[in-house]
Computed example of a mutant assay.
Amino acid sequence: MGTETSVPKRLAVVLLVVVLLGAVPTGVAAQSESTVGGTVVVEEGETIEDLEAVAGTVVVEGTVTGDVSAAAGDVRIESGGEVGGDLETASGSVTIDGTVAGDVDVGAGNVAVGEDGTVGGDFTAGAGNVVVDGTLEGDAAIGAETITLGEGASIAGDLRYNGDLQGNTDAVAGSITEDSTLGFDIAPTLQPLASWLVSLYTLALNLLLGAALLALFPRFSDGVAERVATDPLRTGAVGFGVLIGVPILLVAAAITIIGIPFSIVGGFAFALVVWVGIVYGRFAVAAWLLGYADLENRWLALVVGMIGGAILAQLPFVGGLLNVLILLLGLGALAWGLYTRRRTPGTREPEHRDRIGPDEPAGD
């Protein structure tokens, strides 16, 4: 019996570790890397050959000696970052403040080449808005609704464009030609598409974290749902107090030199607690609502809650406000549950319970 029940627990622990690793920024240290992650970073001082990434954010602070290919919400070549080959990306936004030695071929909602940005090859972009304030050493072909050449811009070759060209056209050493064949109609769709890809990735992480929490702490999770359903006002007030009070305490701790390390570690720990609060809040609200339909299955509540929260996140203003309220409920129920558990130590989580509600006899 003990061996059989310990296997799901071990799997849940492994699942939780995988989720936490997937949620933190991923450093790239391999010679050639293909990766999927929330944030993919080539750290300052690191050198790799090539990078292929699907992520929420891709950041190059170090050196990629070869090519960079990315599908992401945001792609940034930071000041000091170097790409020795080509940059190809479809993303919500692209910012080049470093150096790309080869060609740049991007489709994005917004593209910017900063004052410190340099592109050694040809520059091709289809976007909603393009701002060039750096150096393009080859030819440029830009299709965008708005194309702005800043005072620091320098284009050594020819410029072909389609859209509203503004700014410092004297920055172009070659010819300037309007070319209606350069399209940018697809560019405005890339930013919401990238946003949805990031949302799907976040949804998957939230589902995995929720599954690990339900598998490891079934009674505690049911208690969270029960607290939200029975006393939402007080639970939300507790959550508001935690959300405001803990950061104040962390800032106060950082005032002293001894407290700085505790404040930093506490900040990371609190961020994790807030994430758990978001997951628990969505789970608890879904369980509460499903209870009115006599559907008291925790796994169904988890799926409905995570999908519902992801949909709310896409709604302007109202969705964000509702998700904040759900966070307060989840954070309050979590804090309340941890406080109660500390005052009554020694309780153990039962095995094989699928319903949300009063404790039931354990099955075989």
Rank of each mutant, 00 (worst) to 15 (best):
M1H: 15
T5L: 14
P8E: 00
K9N: 10
R10K: 08
L21D: 07
A23R: 08
P25K: 02
T26A: 15
G27N: 10
V28L: 06
A30W: 04
Q31I: 11
V36M: 11
G37F: 02
V42R: 10
E44D: 08
E46C: 09
T47Q: 15
I48N: 07
I48G: 03
A53V: 07
A53L: 06
A55D: 01
A55T: 01
A55W: 00
V59C: 10
D74C: 11
E78S: 03
G81Y: 03
V83T: 00
G84M: 04
G84P: 11
G84I: 07
A101M: 05
D103M: 03
D105I: 08
V106K: 06
A108T: 06
G109I: 05
N110V: 14
N110C: 09
A112K: 11
V113L: 07
G121W: 02
A127C: 03
A127F: 05
V132Q: 04
V132L: 03
T135A: 01
A140H: 02
G143R: 10
G143P: 13
A144Q: 12
G152Q: 02
S154L: 01
D158W: 03
G163T: 11
L165I: 05
N168V: 00
T169H: 01
A171H: 07
T177K: 08
S180L: 05
P188I: 06
T189A: 15
T189E: 13
L190V: 07
L193A: 10
L193C: 02
A194Q: 09
S195C: 11
W196V: 11
S199I: 09
L200G: 00
T202C: 04
T202A: 11
L208Y: 09
L208E: 04
E226N: 15
T230E: 14
T230M: 12
L233T: 15
R234D: 14
T235S: 01
G236W: 07
A237T: 13
G241M: 12
I248L: 14
L249P: 09
A252N: 01
A252H: 04
S263K: 05
V265C: 12
G267Y: 11
F268L: 12
F270A: 05
V279H: 05
Y280M: 04
F283A: 03
L290T: 03
L295V: 14
N297V: 09
W299L: 09
L300E: 13
G305M: 01
I307Y: 08
G308M: 03
G309M: 04
A310V: 03
G330F: 02
G332C: 06
G332K: 09
T340Q: 15
T344A: 15
T347L: 14
E349D: 08
P350N: 14
E351N: 14
R353W: 14
R353E: 13
A362Y: 15
